[in-house]
């Protein structure tokens, strides 16, 4: 099976992605992760204004039979939460890199991005 791994994103070993736009970073989970989980039924996310620390858990995504923590790829303050996921968690399955995004955070330390996997490295990770 082949999974979508966009080149312009960076990745965590634990299958979260981050995409930066100026000093804002958008965060979600990968196509591979959503496939592993199966049908997502519930997403728990922090609130706007909460602070994330790179590498630490910030939320939970649940399928019928599994619960996964979601880890922060970068540190920063949450500026937007994808509230659509509360009513339509299936967006995580349908469009993990698009409408299934989870948070926007202000990027506190751009150098953290260097610690993340590039698309090729992540492809190797899930191969």
């Amino acid at each position: 099976m082949s999974f979508d791994v966009p080149d312009d994103h960076r990745y965590l070993e634990s299958h979260e992605w981050v995409r930066t736009d100026d000093d804002t970073a958008r965060v979600g989970i990968t196509d591979f992760a959503q496939d592993e989980l199966g049908d997502v039924v519930f997403v728990e996310l922090p609130a706007e204004g909460d602070d994330l620390t790179a590498g630490e858990g910030f939320g939970v995504v649940e399928s019928i039979k599994a619960v996964s923590d979601i880890y922060a790829p970068v540190s920063g303050t949450v500026t937007a939460v994808n509230e659509a996921l509360f009513d339509r968690p299936e967006l995580v399955n349908e469009d993990p890199f698009g409408e299934g995004w989870m948070l926007d955070v202000t990027l506190a330390d751009e150098s953290e991005l260097d610690d993340l996997l590039g698309a090729d490295a992540y492809r190797d990770r899930i191969a």
């Binding site: 519930f42 649940e62 399928s63 019928i64 039979k65 599994a66 619960v67």
Partner: peptide, 12 residues
């Protein structure tokens, strides 16, 4: 909503 329960969430 069985993900609340012990057989899935274990110590949590």
């Amino acid at each position: 909503l069985q993900t609340r329960e012990q057989h899935i969430r274990k110590e949590r």
